[in-house]
Simulated assay, not measured.
Amino acid sequence: MSNFLSGISITLSAIALAVSGWTAYQLSQLNLLIDQQQNTITEQQNTNTQQQDKITQLTQKIEQNKALISSDTTQQLNSVSTTSKAQNNVIQPGQFVRQGFDNKIKIELQSVKRIQNPDSEEKNVVVVQMRIRRIVPKGKVDAISLNQSRGRNPETSEVYRTIQNKSTSFTYINDLPQDSWGNAYFWLKVPEGINVIDIVIPETAIFEAVPISS
């Protein structure tokens, strides 16, 4: 009887040992599977992080390129605008032509340019350069005195006078050529900041809204 019980005890112990070993094996496999899954998750997270970093870097480069393009475009537009303004202030040939002294002469403005006052550091002097031509045969003796010319503010009607001894000398119309142009000029004292003026020459149609170049 004791041998029978001893055999049963041994059998049960073997079964328990087998069950314990199988359980330990299953636990080890489960832990291995969990470790693999964790590694996979970690690798995916690392990959996602790397991809996100690449996306961030790419986005930053795109923004930098946008900023560069925007800056270049702004500079180009500013350059075009400045050039356009400069061109708009330059008198074109034939743009300002008037007849005067009972249609005996023709006057064409060639340039109206602001310069620095030689007597000061201010740029309050405007030099008006023109050319004059007699368009009728010689006749009654008429004279042109450009020192009586004036500038006028088209917005305020303020008058700007010529500077003494800064104009073409007294000229008789009969002395002007009929088949060619003669050059003439006068200086006006115009405050800085004034970019457009009317030019009034005695017995001549007014030159309106003449731009001042610099």
Rank of each mutant, 00 (worst) to 15 (best):
S2F: 15
N3G: 06
N3K: 14
L5M: 10
L5E: 07
I8Q: 15
S9D: 09
S9A: 15
L12T: 12
L12K: 14
S13M: 11
I15N: 02
L17A: 14
L17H: 04
A18D: 14
S20T: 14
A24Q: 03
A24M: 06
Q26I: 04
Q26M: 05
L27N: 15
N31A: 15
Q38A: 15
Q38C: 03
N39K: 13
I41A: 15
I41Q: 14
Q45T: 11
N46D: 11
N46G: 09
N46M: 10
T47N: 04
N48Y: 12
Q50C: 07
Q51I: 14
Q52D: 11
I55G: 00
L58F: 05
T59C: 08
T59E: 15
Q60E: 13
N65T: 14
K66M: 11
I69L: 10
S71L: 10
D72W: 08
T74R: 15
T74S: 13
T74N: 12
N78K: 13
N78I: 09
S79Y: 10
S84D: 04
A86K: 11
N88Y: 10
N88G: 00
V90T: 13
I91H: 05
G100I: 02
D102N: 11
E108G: 07
K113T: 14
I115K: 07
N117P: 06
S120P: 04
E122K: 12
N124M: 05
V128Q: 03
R133P: 06
G139D: 09
K140Q: 13
I144A: 01
G151F: 05
R152T: 07
S157P: 04
S157I: 00
R161D: 06
Q164P: 01
S167Y: 09
Y172F: 15
N174Y: 05
D175F: 05
L176Q: 00
P177G: 04
W181Y: 12
N183Y: 07
Y185I: 09
Y185N: 13
F186A: 03
F186D: 02
L188E: 01
P191S: 00
I194N: 02
I197H: 04
V200G: 05
P202G: 05
A205N: 11
I206T: 11
E208V: 10
P211G: 09
I212F: 00
S213K: 08
S214Y: 06
